[in-house]
């Protein structure tokens, strides 16, 4: 059996608390015998049902894997279409326009050595290989702070990023609410801010209770220090592969 430890949390940003909006970020993760999966979405602040879009997209990805009994081979494009269709169905029942559910989506599936990834929109994924950190998937950004692509965008397939990676034993996924404080942008390339990720990887090495770790990540994201980063909702997740037993 493969050993994984997963932890993460989404918290509401100050701007959504003051305007009474629900948290529009959502994260979920699960561990199976052969793999682990983490999915996160950031519902668009400007979209009326962005939070619901993030929840439905994330849950449908988890459901996709569960119903297929965590297959070794996943058609990632099919998985994204499934998530998109789930949001579209939900929109019909819920009674708003599809684009009111605008959300980003990041999915990580780790089979141990082999990692599959989906990303659409901003936020990003950093991986640890040896003692170094690399940007595995960088934010899909346009020139402006408030503009990105979404799962609900008509041109989503043009921007959809899917990939297979190897040999990252630890992965960190996050939404744009904290991205500026943990990545360094040089021109259009984002580099991990090493000090942050080495602190987080020690934290992950030294703990194994997903619940406690998630609680502490939540506390961290809710702290004044992290609130000062941005007034946006914030999500941070860790996926740690600890070998086979």
């Amino acid at each position: 059996m493969k050993n994984f430890v997963l932890a993460g949390a989404s918290v509401q940003g100050a701007s959504h608390i003051s305007s009474g909006t629900e948290c529009q970020d959502f994260i979920s993760f699960a561990i199976a015998d052969n793999c682990s999966i983490m999915a996160l979405g950031d519902g668009a602040g400007s979209a009326r049902r962005g939070g619901a879009g993030a929840r439905v997209a994330v849950r449908s990805v988890m459901e996709y894997m569960r119903e297929r009994k965590y297959p070794e081979r996943v058609n990632l494009k099919h998985m994204v279409e499934y998530a998109r269709n789930s949001v579209a169905h939900f929109a019909v029942l819920d009674g708003y326009d599809f684009r009111d559910y605008a959300t980003t989506l990041i999915v990580l599936i780790s089979y141990g050595e082999r990692i599959r990834l989906i990303q659409i929109g901003d936020g990003g994924v950093v991986g640890r290989r040896g003692d170094r950190f690399y940007t595995v998937s960088q934010p899909m950004v346009t020139e402006y702070a408030n503009e990105t692509v979404f799962l609900t965008s008509t041109s989503y397939s043009k921007y959809l990023r899917t990939g297979t990676f190897r040999n990252y034993d630890m992965l960190f996924a996050f939404t744009d609410g904290i991205q500026n404080a943990i990545l360094e942008r040089r021109n259009d390339i984002f580099f991990p801010f090493n000090d942050f990720f080495s602190t987080m990887s020690s934290f992950a090495e030294e703990n194994s209770s997903s619940e406690e770790m998630s609680g502490e990540i939540r506390e961290m994201l809710e702290s004044q220090r992290f609130r000062n980063i941005s007034s946006d909702d914030k999500t941070f997740g860790i996926m740690h592969y600890r070998g086979d037993s």
Binding site: N180, E184, F196, S202, R225, F226
Partner: peptide, 19 residues
């Protein structure tokens, strides 16, 4: 012994508000 995550000890870049 378990090392707790102390938000005050987590290094961050100096983020600036978008303009």
């Amino acid at each position: 012994f378990r090392k707790k995550l102390e938000s005050s000890a987590v290094p961050l870049r100096y983020p600036s508000e978008p303009k």
